[in-house]
Deep mutational scan, measured.
Amino acid sequence: CHSECLGNCSQPDDPTKCVACRNFYLDGRCVETCPPPYYHFQDWRCVNFSFCQDLHHKCKNSRRQGCHQYVIHNNKCIPECPSGYTMNSSNLLCTPCLGPCPKVCHLLEGEKTIDSVTSAQELRGCTVINGSLIINIRGGNNLAAELEANLGLIEEISGYLKIRRSYALVSLSFFRKLRLIRGETLEIGNYSFYALDNQNLRQLWDWSKHNLTITQGKLFFHYNPKLCLSEIHKMEEVSGTKGRQERNDIALKTNGDQASCENELLKFSYIRTSFDKILLRWEPYWPPDFRDLLGFMLFYKEAPYQNVTEFDGQDACGSNSWTVVDIDPPLRSNDPKSQNHPGWLMRGLKPWTQYAIFVKTLVTFSDERRTYGAKSDIIYVQTDATNPSVPLDPISVSNSSSQIILKWKPPSDPNGNITHYLVFWERQAEDSELFELDYCLKGLKLPSRTWSPPFESEDSQKHNQSEYEDSAGECCSCPKTDSQILKELEESSFRKTFEDYLHNVVFVPRKT
Rank of each mutant, 00 (worst) to 15 (best):
L107M: 07
L108G: 12
E109G: 15
T113N: 06
T113G: 06
S119K: 01
Q121N: 10
E122V: 12
E122Y: 07
C126G: 00
C126E: 00
S132F: 01
L133R: 00
I137A: 08
L143R: 10
A144V: 15
L147D: 00
N150I: 11
G152M: 05
L153R: 07
G159N: 02
G159E: 01
Y160S: 12
R165I: 12
R176C: 09
R179Y: 11
G183T: 02
E187S: 10
E187A: 04
F193I: 11
Y194L: 07
Q203L: 05
D206R: 03
K209M: 12
H210R: 14
T215S: 11
F221V: 11
H222V: 07
P225S: 06
L227E: 00
C228N: 03
L229A: 11
V238W: 04
G240N: 04
Q245R: 10
D249S: 04
D249H: 03
A251P: 12
K253F: 11
D257K: 14
N263Y: 03
S269D: 06
L279F: 07
L280C: 04
P287L: 09
M297S: 14
Y300P: 00
K301W: 05
Q306I: 02
T309L: 15
D312N: 06
A316E: 15
N320T: 13
T323W: 14
T323N: 13
P329A: 07
R332S: 09
S333G: 06
D335R: 12
P336K: 04
K337S: 12
K337A: 13
S338P: 12
H341E: 10
P342N: 08
M346F: 05
R347H: 07
L349S: 01
K350A: 09
K350N: 04
K350T: 06
Q354Y: 10
I357N: 00
R369W: 12
T371H: 10
Y372P: 11
G373R: 02
A374T: 06
I378S: 01
Y380E: 01
Y380F: 12
Q382A: 15
T383M: 03
D384S: 07
A385H: 10
N387Y: 03
P391I: 04
D393P: 04
P394S: 12
I404G: 00
W408P: 04
